[in-house]
Every structure is written in structure tokens, then in C-alpha cells.
Design a protein around this nucleic acid. Structure first.
Length: 337
DNA sequence: GTGATTTGACCCGC
DNA sequence: GCGGGTCAAATCAC
């Protein structure tokens, strides 16, 4: 076996650990930011350069680290995302893409489905890793249009969990979903787990304000990056806050699994517009720390994109990240940490 | 009539 | 095998 293999695993472990930790930090920062700057960041989705306060500076540093990380990873750019998609890429289907199902419509009642083997449930379950959870006193405060598609009793939970998806999923393929469940300790609070970002990019004002893909972010400086990440990361949380949810608390991050972003017709080699950049990118500061001592910065290169658009930071998901540290990656092979 | 919600069935990942 | 996430027919609300 390749002697680098163990080292690779160790690195991966560190990366994941650091990502999680970084996310927690970012979450705290996000909370702080939201309290201090909600109006500035949220309603305008623009940031004017200059006038950095400590929070901004901190985020700027995070983003600086992000830049560095990109540079480091750039050294691996000869290992394209194909690595990700090759051997074990059993996923890659959106929930709405049950291609392998011979979509024979049962056409009859659900009772017959049981007997006749209907196609219900024929889907590839999404793995999640771009998720984040908030606590809120209301479930309907974000400005997105949600459609409930399921409710389920959860083991060891007093309250059922409700499942919502973006109303625009059928028409725009928006993959955002959310799970809502009452808190057992405090039934007046809801635990809302958001999965994925909205890609519907609808023009209606209910989303325009907060949709990270839409807003025009000033990108002439680090401040702009601050705006970008702040927007992307906060996402739905912002919407909640915008509606005066004083009780909203970011309680956790779902960096556990990967959400399946490959929808067949989009998101081929990079993730959807804002899908990953929020949670992951902020955490990358910690990753960068690991590499900073080992790699000098190079020219910035964002997967062939410029750094002038927020969603251009979202080119990588967990698999991609891991792939960059795979034995295929020349960086890892030459610079063992 | 149309769109949203309910709810049992079904499938996937662990 | 179990629990949870999603599907989709049935039902409800407007």
C-alpha cells in the first residue's frame, strides 16, 4: 500500500475536524454579525468598501485564509473534479431524477402501489452536508416559498418532523429543503434545518433580497468578500433575522454529509451557486492553517473563474475537497503534513 | 379549478 | 432491520 495513504487519511481527518471547528467559529461570528449588521448586510446585500469594524476585519481574515487555501489547492488543480465523479459516485441524482425508475405510473390508489410495486419512493436519497440548523420562534419567517411535502413521526421525539421544499422546485429545480421540528424542551421554539441553498433565483422580491446568487456584491476588496461570504453563509438565517426573529439561534451545522448537488442538468463539476461556499468556505480558514506552513501562496485561481462573483467560491464540495487530498493529488504527495 | 397539505407507501443509508 | 427522507394519491382550502 502507498505509504502516503495513511498520511492522507490523517490529513483528511484533520481537515474534517478543522472544518467543523471552523464552522463553529464562523457560526458564532455570523451570529455576532447578524446582530450588529443585519440591516447593512441583509437588506442591501451590498457592502460599501471601507469602514471595516472588528467583525468585518475578522471575516476579512477568514476570507483571506480562504484565498490562501484556494492557492494551495490550486496546486492540485491537475486533479480535476473527475476524481470525485469516478468510482464511487453512486449519487449524483437529484431527488427529482429517478431515472432508473421505469416511471410506470401506477395510476391508481396507494393501496395498489403496495401490491403492484409502484414507483413511489424511487429516488436517490440526498446526502446532506450543506445543512445548517437554526432555532426560531416561527417557522414561516424566511421569505422563501416553501411547500410541505411530508411529515413524519421521529423516534424518541414528541413532535413530528415536517418536510418542506422550495415551491419552485418543479419549475426551477430549486433543491432547497428544510426540516422543521418543535423543540421538546421548548415547544414554542422550532428547530429548522435548512438543506441546500436556493437556486431558483426568482425575480420576485421575496427572494431577491436574500438570494446569494442574485445580489450584486461589491468585489473590489476584501470587504466584498466579506459581503459574499456573509451573505452566502447566513442565507436563510438572515431571512429569519430580517423578520425580527429575536430568538433565532444558530445551533449547529450539518457538515456531516454531502448534499447531492448534481442535478444532471446543472452543477456538473462545481457546486451550485451558493451551495457550499457558505458553510464550507468559512471553515476553510482552519484548513488553511494546516497548510500555511507548507505551502507558499501562488497566484489565485478559482477553478477557472474569477473571484468577482460570490458563487464562484462555491466550486468545491466535500468530495472535491477530499479529492484534492487524495493520493492523486500531487500536492499531498509532495508535501506531507 | 387550482394549488397546498395530508398521509401511507416506498426506498436508501446506516 | 430500522429509522428517516421522499414520493404521490387523496383530500382540503381558497
Amino acid at each position: 500500500m502507498d505509504p502516503n495513504s495513511n498520511n492522507t487519511k490523517s490529513i483528511k481527518r484533520k481537515v474534517v475536524d478543522q472544518l467543523v471547528q471552523g464552522y463553529e467559529f464562523a457560526t458564532q461570528l455570523q451570529l455576532l454579525l447578524s446582530h450588529q449588521h443585519s440591516s447593512q448586510y441583509i437588506s442591501q446585500t451590498r457592502i460599501v468598501s471601507g469602514d471595516l469594524d472588528p467583525v468585518d476585519e475578522l471575516i476579512a481574515k477568514i476570507l483571506s485564509s480562504f484565498h490562501k487555501t484556494i492557492s494551495v489547492l490550486d496546486s492540485c488543480d491537475s486533479v480535476p473534479m473527475a476524481v470525485k465523479g469516478s468510482p464511487n459516485a453512486s449519487r449524483g441524482d437529484d431527488l427529482a431524477a429517478p431515472v432508473s425508475c421505469n416511471g410506470g405510473d401506477s395510476g391508481d390508489s396507494r393501496k395498489r402501489l403496495g401490491v403492484g410495486k409502484g414507483k413511489r419512493g424511487c429516488y436517490t436519497r440526498k446526502k446532506r452536508w450543506h445543512t445548517w440548523t437554526v432555532e426560531a420562534s416561527r417557522i414561516d419567517e424566511d421569505k422563501y416559498a416553501w411547500r410541505k411535502y411530508g411529515q413524519k413521526e421521529i423516534l424518541n421525539s414528541k413532535f413530528p418532523r415536517s418536510y418542506f421544499r422550495c415551491t419552485h422546485k418543479p419549475t426551477r429545480g430549486c433543491k432547497a429543503t428544510k426540516l422543521v421540528q418543535k423543540q421538546e424542551q421548548d415547544p414554542s421554539l422550532f428547530q429548522i434545518t435548512y438543506i441546500g441553498h436556493h437556486t431558483c433565483n426568482v425575480s420576485d422580491q421575496t427572494q431577491a433580497n436574500t438570494e446569494p446568487n442574485d445580489h450584486g456584491v461589491v468585489m473590489d476588496s476584501d470587504n466584498a468578500l466579506v459581503a459574499t461570504i456573509a451573505q452566502d453563509n447566513v442565507n436563510a438565517n438572515i431571512q429569519e433575522q430580517e423578520n425580527d426573529i429575536s430568538s433565532l439561534i444558530v445551533v449547529g451545522a450539518g457538515m456531516v454529509k454531502e448534499e447531492d448537488n448534481n442535478n444532471g442538468d446543472q452543477n456538473k463539476n462545481y457546486c451550485e451557486g451558493s451551495s457550499v461556499d457558505g458553510d464550507l468556505s468559512l471553515a476553510w480558514q482552519d484548513v488553511m492553517m494546516m497548510f500555511d506552513d507548507h505551502q507558499h501562496h501562488q497566484n489565485h485561481y478559482y477553478q477557472g473563474e474569477t473571484s468577482t462573483a460570490s458563487h464562484k467560491f462555491s466550486f468545491i464540495d466535500n468530495d472535491q475537497l477530499f479529492s484534492l487530498f487524495d493520493p492523486y493529488c500531487p500536492y499531498e504527495g509532495t508535501n506531507a503534513i
